[in-house]
Design a protein around this nucleic acid. Structure first.
Length: 569
RNA sequence: GCGCCUAUAGCUCAAUUGGAUAGAGCAACGGACUUCUAAUCCGUAGGUUGCAGGUUCGACUCCUGCUAGGCGUGCCA
């Protein structure tokens, strides 16, 4: 497609130059020629609104300009172009020859599972950090969404030639996990029969911690009561982190997400890097003392408020290990780092970016995206709060369990991933659990998977009838003359650019929509045209190649999304 | 108060980053299985793209100002 575009670009450009040379067109400067996609086959394969763009400086009606340009194109010299039309306000519509269409099938047959990939990323090292949920409870649904998106983005970036990896930052140090230890301490002592205890301010109410505290009491009895409160809380904290982390890991694995690296905030804190950061900031005069605390001059970086980096009790705020952690990422050699943050980290973006700037790292080195809320919606359409602190959240495991009851374990993961991936990251996502379960079998993911299964089924049927696909070289592709066949091939040709765009804009949902559209052309085709026709083997052979290509692209696309491509349903 | 995000069909979302007649899926209604899987297909209906201006040959997209919702906002992470 790219080579074709380059060729067309040259043709149009020289036509404009010829028109200018012939004094039919007056322009001051050679413009860049834009290409716009064609929505309908009548508009050809590639279109350009260049005549519209030239109208002003050429002082001429766009249609007239288009006509002039077209007269300077010698179609006989360019066999790739079958026909050129002028339409609408002055669009130049280019129809490519059928041979070009058939080239797409050739490319797919050659590249197979590599179709859709490219080497644009030049093997650069890239890291995406996502989920990074506090080790204070199970993976919830918002984190599940982040898991699906992050995992898929890594797939996409690898597909376009980057060397991307998945990283999880474990917040296993700091105030939050201390509150966790204190909360478990309360549950533990309650389990031992102590009365009148309450979860401390900022602690965790979740039911899973009550069970955890009870388990400790059941297995170890009251031995912990002999420890100093501080030691006991620390012991519970570490115990809980290890336990919860293992649980999070297995939930994510069940969801098909495996991280390459688990980084520890505790390790960062103990590495000495935070001290180096503070020293660096001090040297650069970014810090000052006030109200007993140490402040960072965030206002120097355009923020409206300074912020505390060392609290009056001498402890770092989370900014310091966080800055140190990003410094560490840079030292590990990543050319670009992408953080996917939860919606409650809104205010964190500009500050983190400013810290990165203060560290002297390149501006575009760090990209931050917010994965927006997932609202649980009940059957009446009422939204429910998912605050972890109040313990009213739904876990990723709950979700998959419920979906599994409706559609089975494998499809449950597929449905959940699809659901999370189908929307743009920055939009709020309403998740109606009841609807998701009762309508699980009507989920659009099956529409795509079914298309794949149907392709497989054709080959199975063919096998039974003794019809097997021939190598593409032995097939007359010009048997593919149906408009729907051309539409299918055109769609197949779009796959690589969709993957590229999706990866570069970090918007996985584009691939989802693409696959849905592809399936949306395939199903009607399947219904209207028979592939296996023993009476016309030439056509059958050509159609089998087409079906192989559709099957291949569906499979490649679903694989990128981490969704299975079943051979039968 | 300030900052960020969002607003598109009854509902949930798209729209290839400024291009042609704004598209899908649910939900509603009417049709199609003796033929490669009906988890499918065909058809009907559904719109002043939150409001008001502006830029442009051309705006859902960019700019300004409103309105509504969400999130954030100096010692939680």
């Amino acid at each position: 497609m790219d080579t074709i575009k380059a060729e067309i670009y040259d043709i149009i450009e020289s036509a404009i130059q010829a028109a200018v040379a012939a004094a039919e067109l007056t322009i001051s400067e050679m413009p860049k020629i834009p290409f716009s996609p064609t929505k309908t086959p009548e508009h050809g394969d590639i279109a350009t609104p260049i005549a519209l763009g030239l109208a002003k400086q050429a002082r001429m009606a766009p249609r007239k300009i288009a006509e002039i340009i077209v007269t300077h194109i010698n179609l006989d010299a360019h066999p790739t172009i079958r026909q050129i039309d002028i339409a609408g306000a002055g669009f130049i519509n280019i129809h490519l020859s059928d041979n070009y269409l058939y080239d797409t099938l050739q490319i797919i047959a050659t590249m197979q599972e590599a179709y859709g990939t490219c080497d644009k990323g030049e093997a650069k090292q890239l890291q995406i950090e996502f989920v990074s949920a506090n080790p204070t409870g199970p993976i919830n649904i918002v984190s599940g969404r982040a898991a699906a998106v992050g995992d898929t983005l890594v797939n996409l970036l690898n597909a376009i030639g980057y060397n991307a990896m998945r990283e999880y930052y474990v917040n296993d140090a700091g105030g939050q996990v201390d509150r966790l230890g204190e909360s478990i301490d309360v549950r533990y002592r309650q389990a031992l029969g102590e009365e009148g205890l309450e979860i401390p301010e900022g602690g965790y109410q979740g039911e899973y911690l009550r069970e955890f505290g009870k388990t400790i009491a059941d297995t170890d009895g009251d031995v912990y009561l002999q420890l100093e409160t501080k030691e006991r809380v620390a012991a519970f904290r570490d115990k809980a982190i290890a336990h919860i982390l293992a649980q999070q890991k297995s939930s994510l694995e069940r969801f098909g997400v495996e991280f390459d690296v688990w980084s520890s905030e505790k390790a960062i804190r103990e590495s000495g890097k935070p001290e180096e950061i503070i020293e660096l900031f001090r040297d650069k005069s970014y810090l000052y003392e006030a109200e007993g605390a140490t402040w960072f001059r965030m206002t120097d970086f355009g923020d409206d408020k300074d912020c505390v980096v060392i609290r009056s009790n001498g402890e770092y705020t989370y900014f310091v290990p966080d800055a140190a952690y990003h410094r560490d990422k840079f030292d590990r050699g990543f050319t670009t780092v992408i953080d996917l943050l939860g919606p409650d980290h809104q205010g964190h973006i500009s500050r983190l970016k400013n810290f990165v700037k203060a560290l002297g790292l390149p501006d575009d080195w760090l990209e931050i995206f917010i994965i927006q809320w997932v609202n649980l919606v009940d059957a009446e359409g009422k939204r429910s709060d998912m605050s972890k602190r109040r313990g009213q959240f739904r876990t990723l495991d709950d979700l998959i369990d419920e979906l599994a009851e409706a559609v089975g374990e494998q499809f449950a993961v597929d449905v959940a991933r699809y659901f999370f991936l189908m929307r743009a990251n920055n939009t709020h996502l309403d998740f109606n659990m009841e609807l998701a379960v009762t309508h699980a079998s009507e989920n659009p993911v099956f529409y795509i998977q079914y298309a794949h299964a149907r392709c497989c089924s054709i080959f199975e049927q063919g096998d039974e009838q003794g019809i097997t696909p021939k190598p593409i070289e032995a097939v007359s592709l010009n048997q593919l003359t149906e408009p729907m066949e051309h539409e299918l091939i055109r769609k197949l040709a779009e796959f690589p650019s969709t993957v590229l765009l999706s990866a570069e804009t970090r918007e996985a949902h584009r691939v989802v929509h693409y696959l849905h559209e592809l399936a949306g052309i395939f199903h009607p085709y399947y219904n209207q045209h028979r592939v296996l026709d023993p009476a016309d083997m030439k056509k059958t052979d050509a159609r089998l190649i087409l079906i192989q290509s559709v099957q291949r692209v569906l499979k490649n696309g679903l694989t990128l999304l981490g969704i299975s491509a079943p051979t039968s349903m």
